[in-house]
Design a binder for these strands. Structure first.
Lengths: 150, 150
DNA sequence: TATTGTTATACTCTATAACTATA
DNA sequence: TATAGTTATAGAGTATAACAATA
């Protein structure tokens, strides 16, 4: 019931949706923009974002298992199966039996090489991301997000 | 290669993944937490988040069309079809021909009633969301997110 | 010619139930 | 008894191509 004095203007300039000031809406939108950008930077490595996350996690945690990766990254056990199969098919990880039930996930030499590329790309990406935020707000983003998660 | 002095502790306390300080990772995680919470609050109304967004948008913009909703909410034209069909089947919206090509989307009386519930729930939700952020960081979240989007 | 609404389709992501083998 | 890995499956979300009708 507002802005009925706007007809031919609608196409040239997008009117702000009634959602553009809502933190929740902005949060989703920012996450989508960020994910799309990161995904396109990882695409040349033939890796999805979740693949890169797994490589980083596996490199950091000695003898981590599939279930543990799932817990850390909030991925269902069942959904880990095709994920790890893909990384294994790409010769980036290998499995080593811990006992007859559990398998440790390790990076292969190729996986270690790829990990270096991932570190370079994500490091650069995160830096650019933070640099886009005006300096007076910059330091507040991480604690604010952590408060929302906690 | 860190923290191999940690065996039985792994289950009781989750070790921080090497991702938990990265703004990009936090952004995705915060968005997921927020979406899950909002979705569960809208569930009693039998609405998805995107449904609620459409109701808010349609109420705000006189004679908006399906294509325009799609542009505003970044939804593909083709994906608007089942979305609006669902809202129409629930008697929340109706279509009115603008010409022989375009249709205006309007709220039905039922749709207006449901919109009031949506406003109550989302308003409460956004308030609680912001209240969870420590006061010294609070005002910085929206501008920081807008900078990431812009 | 460009746009609207639509159909069909496919891929990703996420979630659940159930099974087996083992701890 | 609980857990690890797995299979199968289903529901969302998202993307593209193509078409008819109309602006």
């Amino acid at each position: 019931m507002v802005n009925n004095n706007m007809t031919s203007d609608e196409n040239s300039r997008q009117k702000a949706a009634p959602l553009d000031d809502l933190p929740g809406y902005l949060l989703r939108k920012a996450a989508r923009v960020m994910m799309a950008e990161l995904a396109s930077r990882l695409a040349p490595l033939d890796l999805r974002i979740v693949d890169a996350s797994v490589l980083l996690l596996v490199a950091d945690r000695e003898d981590i298992t599939s279930s543990e990766i799932g817990k850390a990254l909030e991925i269902q056990r069942a959904n880990m199966v095709p994920l790890l199969a893909r990384l294994e098919a790409a010769s980036l990880i290998e499995r080593k039996a811990l006992d007859r039930k559990s398998q440790a996930i390790h990076l292969t030499p190729t996986g270690h090489d790829r990990l270096q590329d991932v570190r370079t790309i994500t490091g650069q990406f995160e830096n650019e991301l933070v640099d886009r935020i005006p300096v007076e707000h910059r330091a507040h983003l991480v604690p604010a997000l952590q408060a929302l998660i906690g």
